[in-house]
Structures are given as C-alpha cells and as structure tokens.
Design a protein around this nucleic acid. Structure first.
Lengths: 195, 195
DNA sequence: CCGTACATAACAAACGTTTGGCATGTACGC
DNA sequence: GCGTACATGCCAAACGTTTGTTATGTACGG
C-alpha cells in the first residue's frame, strides 16, 4: 500500500527548494530542468519524478511564493488599524535577503504571467486578495479615526501601488534603498495619508 | 559603400518593429530569431543581416523602449510645476493600447534585467533619470507654492513608486483600471500631496 | 565584377520529455 | 519465514524539437 522508504513530501520540498534557488539566481528565463537538477545535485529524472513537467514546476514555485508571502508576519503583528497596514506593507518590501529573493522571483514571474492566460488570471487574483487584505486594515483604521473616510478600496490600491513600485526600485538599486530608507518611505507615505 | 537597392535604415526599423510586436505578444520568454522573422514574414537570415545576434536585438528593443517613453504623445503641453508632474505620471501609465504594449514590454524586461549585469545597470540608470525628471517638476511646484517643502528627492521616489505600482496592477487587471480610473487615482494621489 | 540584400539550410548546443533499468522497499499466499 | 509480486526512488541515456549562429547560394543595382 504505502511502500515509503523515503519521505515523499520531504523530497518533493527539496526539489521545490532547488527551483527557488535557481529562480532567485537566474530568473524564469534561466529556469530549466537541468538547472534545477544541477542545483539539487541529481538527475533530471528525479525532478520529473516529483513534478510532472516544467509547467508544474512553475506553478508550484508560484504557490510557494504566495504561501511564503502569507506566512511572512515575521514582524510582530501589532495593533489593528494603521499599524497593521504599516506591517502589511513592510512585509511585502525586500527588507531582508530572503525578502529580496522573494520579490526578485515575483517580479521576474511577470513576463511569463503576462503571456500565459492561467498565470495571468492567478496573478490578477493574487492582487485582488492583497488589496482586500489591505482594505480590511484601512477600514479598521478609519473606524479608529486614524485615517480619513476616503474610499477604502482606492486607498488600498494606492497603498499597494506605492509598495510594489518601491519594491521594483529597491530591487534595481539596493544601495540607494536599504531597509531603513524603505521603512522611512513607508512611514512618510502613511503620514501623508493621515493629513 | 553606399546604399544599394534598399534603404538600410528603413529596413532595419522594420525588423525593430517586428521585435516590438513579438515582445508585446509573447514577452522576452517568447523572443526568438524565428519568431521575429515570422512576424516580419521573412527568414532569419534577414534578421541577422541587420542585427548581429539576439543580444543586439534585445539591446535595441530596450533602446526603443526608452526612446518611445521619452517621445510619448505629449498630453496637453503642460504648465510647469504640479501640472507637469501630473503629465509625466500620466505619460507613463498604460492609458492607451500603445502605452499598454510599452509597459508590458518594460515590465517583462525585468526578469532578464535582474539577472544580466549590463541590463541591470541600464535599468538602474533609467530609474535615476526618471526620478530626476520628476524631481525637477516637483521642485518647480514647490517654488510655485503648489507643494509643501518636503525633500523633493523623496517625493520623486514616492511618485514614481506609486505610478509604476499602478502600471503593474493595471496591466494585470485592465477592466478594473480603465484610463479614467487610472487618471482619477493619479489626481487623488496628487491631491493627497498638496494637503 | 563587386558588394549589398536576402533566402536556404545546415550546425551544434540546449531544451523538455520519455524510456529502460536497477535498486530497494512493502505485501501477501503459502 | 520465505519467495514471489509489485510499487517506489532514482539514474543514465536517448528522444525529437527548438534554440542561436553560421555557411552557402542567388539576385541585382552600381
């Protein structure tokens, strides 16, 4: 029934980790079966044994991306409202090497996502969900009187636009945008909203 | 020595246009010599006759990108200051099909640019130049009393972050972000700065 | 003729995928 | 308890295709 001489899920995660490594280093343009196998120190046969093909590799990588983003409240989940919004924005930014790798992969996925209908739809949905999360915090902040009563949907879109635009700038000029500078920009942005 | 029977520059631009077409449709992941030749209705021999190799194709495509960005259909000759800033931001956004194609290519180039040192440096420079242009308008607006006397460099970074973040959201959800909505978001963003 | 313009076609390399095989484990009739 | 049957883990090799590049050939204006 279950001849399990190795932990299937564990091994599968090893492959997934190798994919992550390749993507962080060479982007989606450099993602090949052989590169993944090489990063794993194995054959391509092993890779296809755990993932049916390249498509599944990519799909799984993007799932990981979302999962890691969701499980990122590394920063202490603070008070609700404006403080929560701030934390959500900071959690997106490339403040650490791991965050930088995540964002590099995310940004890199867009070329593919813009030309593949399935990935396109997935990305559209992802943005929807992120905006909804931001909007919750914004509405709570408004209830607490921390933000003016503008359209919370618009504010969420604006906050996400600012955050992701900052991500791209930071990725392409890490020296100009150290963690402290990014944090400062977020705080100033939020301060401008409260006026 | 001299032009033989066809206009070299004109033909070269035809190739360049085919590259543009392929990139807009299939991104950098779908850019191949054969795809370009096919879009042009010719052989790959023609393509290599005008561009030494794929690298030159890509480099030229990114030059076109910058050139077209600079020579954008000028929306209403802007008054200096805040109105100029608004125009600069609107000129970046995918308000027209051509603008959408441009941004799609630009966003798509990031996966490659993040892994290629030359393209990386070029992109970093490009952002520098854009921020400088925005900062000029911001400083003029401050001189005119249209904006508070915050650090103009920070404001330029924030404005560019917001604009480019909006670009990405709009690319992945065109129905949610028609031209009118994008314009509205820019105006609201600018209004928040003046308070 | 000669050099430019382009097509044709060949090329090795790299690609995603498939296959055959050899282990090594569990399952089970006897 | 033990031998047969079968599933899983994984490698090595080969498959056919697509890639970028290059070599060769033809047409033709100057």
């Amino acid at each position: 029934m279950s001849p399990a001489r190795t932990d299937h899920d564990s091994r599968r995660q090893d492959v997934s980790e190798a994919v992550w490594q390749v993507l962080a280093a060479h982007g989606f343009g450099g993602l090949t079966m052989r590169a993944v196998a090489s990063a794993l120190g194995s054959s391509t046969g092993l890779v296809t044994h755990y993932f049916a093909g390249k498509r599944e590799l990519i799909a799984h990588a993007l799932d990981i991306l979302e999962a890691r983003t969701a499980a990122r409240p590394r920063l202490a989940p603070p008070a609700p409202g404006l403080a929560a919004l701030r934390t959500q924005m900071l959690n997106i930014l490339p403040l650490t090497p791991e965050g930088a790798a995540m964002n590099r992969i995310w940004v890199g996925s867009w070329d593919l996502a813009l030309s593949d209908p399935d990935l396109f739809a997935a990305q559209t949905l992802r943005y929807d969900r992120i905006r909804a999360g931001l909007r919750d915090s914004i509405e709570e902040a408004q209830r607490l009187g921390e933000l003016p009563d503008d359209d919370p949907g618009r504010l969420a879109t604006t906050a996400l636009a600012f955050t992701h635009g900052l991500v791209v700038q930071a990725l392409f000029d890490p020296e100009r945008f150290p963690a402290s500078t990014q944090t400062r920009l977020v705080d100033d942005f939020l301060a401008a909203l409260t006026d």
